[in-house]
């Protein structure tokens, strides 16, 4: 067992589950499907599963069926898409930085996207959805580039812990500027405050269709990088010794993270800490091969956010808790747990 493998196993805690991958994939798919059905059916109005099926097979224009198609289904889809992309973004970031605490929310990428979107709204008056999505992507790219550069610079100087603290400081800085902007412009505050908490309430298929291309591009790019990332995750020097052109891998990974995290933030605001536990669980289930870990992270991430979104409706009814708060409440304790156990570098 190499040092890197040991670290991976140590991270998972118990080594690897011996269940065959196919069975696991099947279970994951079923769980996700069940969660999506639950997400469509549960809420202030309960909708029976047969009504959901009927909405697709024999649409009759009834209120319930309209709710299914125009409100609940897009929302479940957005939740799934956001979760899948954030889960994958976290997995890619952890593989590249070999840092078990790397995650878009922790390293400031989410807030980069949020700042750019809010800034464009307040300062430049950008109002169109496409414009905001692009701004979020640019913001994520800027913050992501900074983090990757820091990681690259700090091969020796910057330990995983320091990178996390640097990311937290970046986040604090960006959040301070966002708040400053919102102080200046009350109208934007009204529009942005729900979004800034990480919320998918009231999203519709227009938004989904806007961000979907970027999400798909990010997912595709990440999957293409899966094999090189597996090699890279052994360490950059090792990867280079094996003949890998590590610059391409890092650049590609950065682009994938920007697309994945940026589009997720554009859709739902900074939903944080999804990309932390999900890749850990994926590696625990599937080992260190990112050809399996990445799809698993997508499915588990989707599952996490969909379930969190369903739970968010029942915490303080009739109010809904923003889904970003739910993921933070789940992810925060996990983060602390990882820190307490002592994180081995990946």
């Amino acid at each position: 067992m190499s040092a890197a493998e040991r670290a991976g196993a140590g991270l998972a805690g118990y080594g690897r589950l011996p269940l065959p991958g196919l069975l696991l994939a099947l279970l994951g798919g079923l769980a996700l499907a069940a969660a999506v059905v639950a997400s469509i059916s549960l809420g202030t109005v309960f909708i029976a599963p047969e009504t959901i099926v009927a909405a697709f097979t024999s649409f009759d224009g009834s209120d319930q069926q309209v709710i299914v198609l125009t409100v609940r289904l897009p929302r479940a889809m957005i939740a799934a898409a956001v979760g899948a992309t954030l889960g994958m973004a976290g997995a890619v970031m952890q593989a590249v930085s070999r840092n078990p605490l790397a995650e878009p929310g922790i390293l400031g990428i989410s807030w980069g996207a949020a700042l750019a979107a809010v800034g464009a709204q307040v300062l430049l008056g950008v109002g169109s959805l496409t414009g905001l999505v692009w701004c979020a992507l640019v913001g994520a790219a800027a913050a992501g580039a900074a983090v990757v550069m820091l990681g690259a610079l700090g091969r020796r100087g910057l330990t995983p812990a320091k990178l996390v603290v640097a990311g937290a400081a970046v986040s604090a800085l960006l959040a301070a500027v966002v708040q400053g902007l919102l102080v200046l412009d009350r109208e934007s505050l009204e529009g942005a405050r729900r979004w800034l908490a990480g919320s998918i309430v009231g999203t519709n298929e227009t938004l989904l269709l806007q961000v979907l291309p970027y999400q798909l591009a990010g997912i595709l790019l990440a999957l293409l990088l899966a094999r090189p990332l597996t090699t890279f995750s052994l360490g950059e020097d090792v990867a280079r010794g094996l003949g890998q052109r590590t610059g391409f891998v890092k650049g590609g990974a950065a682009a994938a993270v920007v697309l994945l995290a940026g589009s997720a933030v554009a859709a739902a605001g900074p939903v944080i800490l999804v990309g932390l536990a999900v890749p850990h669980l994926s590696r625990f289930l599937f080992g260190r091969d990112y050809r399996r870990v990445l799809p698993a992270a997508a499915v588990l991430g989707a599952l996490l956010v969909v379930v969190a979104d369903v739970a968010a409706r029942f915490v303080i009814p009739p109010e809904e808790v923003p889904v970003g708060v739910m993921t933070a409440l789940v992810g925060g304790p996990y983060f602390v747990h990882v820190v307490r156990r002592g994180m081995a570098p990946l």
Binding site: I106, G198, A328, L329, G332
Partner: peptide, 16 residues
């Protein structure tokens, strides 16, 4: 850092 992340999320929840 972890506590800040959660605390901030809760703050934003209240603000929203």
């Amino acid at each position: 850092v972890g506590v800040t992340l959660v605390g901030h999320a809760l703050v934003m929840a209240v603000v929203s």
